[in-house]
Simulated assay, not measured.
Amino acid sequence: MHKFNVKGNLVGDDSSVFVIAEAGINHAGSFIEAKKMVETAKLSKADAVTFQHIAYNEINISKYYRVESNWDKWRLSDEQIIELFDEAHKFGLATTACVVDFNSLEFVVKSGADFLKVVSGDITCLPFLAECAKTGLPIFLSTGSAVLSEIEDALEVIDKSGGKDVVVYQTNTKYPTPPQEVDLKAMEMLKKFKYPVGFCDHTEGTAISLAAVALGANVIEKHFSLDPTLKRPDYQVSISPSELTRFIADIRNVKDAMGKPIKRRHVNDENFILVRRSLVARNDMVKGTKIQWGDLAYKRPGTGTQPAKAEKFIGKTLKFDVKRDEQLYECMLEDN
């Protein structure tokens, strides 16, 4: 798998999961809230915080879509986006603002975006993908509702246009996505492209993302809000600041818990001796007793003869008296 760095964070296998706290437009145009969201992402120990900077009328024909929209009302100014990028970088966070038009693309690149997020609807907009690739920034490519051939075409254009660092997202365009439509196992197929694979989570809660980590997701993106009860566009798939903190801690724990594909005994794991059993005398026995199966018992701790060797004691004669529960050793036996 190709690996690459995003602001000092290695993205790919054998590295920590790259976690993106997606602020989007959950600030509803409030710059104060947007700045608070950057701080929240930092406190939650995310790796990146991202926003949207989409000019609604640049991508929608007014004949078919409302000219006015909340996306326009809630769109931050260019100057505010630049300040948010600076704030994120001050906290050590990677950042970007999702864009869908050429002018905004040029703006976020010049403003210091660390990577580019391509929304699912643009996976077939090959001229736009080519321009994204020409920037040289890593591209996080959403594949919601795309079939395999469309993903292949998109990646081919990105590659031919100079884009080398790509994350392929398993995601869905339905908000919220019901569990039966998430298709996490599709990540196994996406890995054939040899790029890091991510999960852009549009489900309710956090359980599905944790499952994605267990299945090998290298990147997780999750919406959050300072107050998810406020009915803003992504509120149904957003989590609160406290949930975000717990969520990221859970991701780190799941990743650590995956371990390596081997069965091993860990260093300093002494409990295994305490919970295993040893061969012991079931009752008091005197010297000269010929041991039968009924004379044996198996009790903790496992510091003595292992029960697997019990057959070696059958029919043998004791050299000494032994007490009930006394551990038995071959040195206690006569040479018959």
Rank of each mutant, 00 (worst) to 15 (best):
residue 73 K to S: 08
residue 232 R to L: 15
residue 182 V to M: 00
residue 322 V to I: 02
residue 51 F to T: 09
residue 312 K to H: 09
residue 32 I to R: 15
residue 160 K to H: 11
residue 14 D to V: 14
residue 317 T to C: 10
residue 155 L to S: 08
residue 200 C to G: 10
residue 158 I to N: 08
residue 87 E to Q: 10
residue 114 D to W: 12
residue 46 A to E: 03
residue 324 R to T: 15
residue 237 V to S: 01
residue 7 K to I: 07
residue 329 Y to W: 05
residue 236 Q to L: 14
residue 183 D to V: 13
residue 205 G to P: 02
residue 88 A to H: 01
residue 294 G to L: 03
residue 90 K to W: 09
residue 259 G to Q: 09
residue 315 G to Y: 13
residue 301 P to Q: 03
residue 61 I to D: 14
residue 17 V to Q: 08
residue 296 L to W: 00
residue 230 L to S: 06
residue 166 V to M: 10
residue 220 I to Q: 05
residue 276 R to S: 15
residue 184 L to S: 02
residue 264 R to K: 15
residue 332 M to E: 05
residue 29 G to V: 08
residue 135 T to V: 05
residue 189 M to S: 04
residue 282 R to Y: 05
residue 95 T to L: 06
residue 304 G to A: 12
residue 231 K to D: 15
residue 101 D to W: 05
residue 306 Q to M: 08
residue 148 L to N: 12
residue 185 K to W: 04
residue 209 S to L: 02
residue 219 V to P: 12
residue 30 S to F: 05
residue 44 S to E: 00
residue 247 F to E: 11
residue 140 F to E: 04
residue 186 A to E: 04
residue 285 M to F: 04
residue 80 Q to R: 02
residue 92 G to H: 11
residue 75 R to K: 15
residue 273 I to N: 02
residue 328 L to F: 12
residue 277 R to M: 02
residue 222 K to Q: 11
residue 238 S to M: 06
residue 68 E to W: 07
residue 51 F to A: 09
residue 314 I to G: 01
residue 235 Y to C: 09
residue 216 G to T: 06
residue 135 T to W: 01
residue 196 P to Y: 10
residue 86 D to F: 10
residue 30 S to T: 08
residue 31 F to G: 13
residue 149 S to C: 06
residue 175 Y to R: 11
residue 120 S to V: 04
residue 145 S to D: 12
residue 121 G to Y: 00
residue 131 E to R: 09
residue 50 T to M: 01
residue 36 K to P: 09
residue 229 T to C: 05
residue 131 E to V: 11
residue 269 D to N: 13
residue 255 K to A: 05
residue 122 D to C: 07
residue 126 L to D: 08
residue 21 A to F: 04
residue 181 E to A: 14
residue 317 T to M: 10
residue 53 H to D: 00
residue 107 F to V: 01
residue 267 V to W: 14
residue 112 G to N: 13
residue 31 F to V: 15
residue 64 Y to F: 15
residue 227 D to H: 06
residue 325 D to V: 03
residue 57 N to R: 11
residue 18 F to M: 05
residue 100 V to S: 07
residue 51 F to G: 08
residue 284 D to K: 07
residue 35 K to L: 14
residue 101 D to A: 10
residue 58 E to H: 02
residue 203 T to F: 13
residue 56 Y to R: 05
residue 35 K to Q: 15
residue 155 L to K: 07
residue 117 K to T: 01
residue 44 S to R: 01
residue 60 N to Q: 11
residue 309 K to P: 05
residue 107 F to E: 02
residue 173 T to I: 10
residue 164 K to F: 09
residue 9 N to V: 02
residue 2 H to C: 10
residue 51 F to V: 07
residue 335 D to S: 03
residue 20 I to S: 06
residue 90 K to F: 11
residue 158 I to L: 07
residue 157 V to H: 04
residue 327 Q to Y: 02
residue 213 V to D: 15
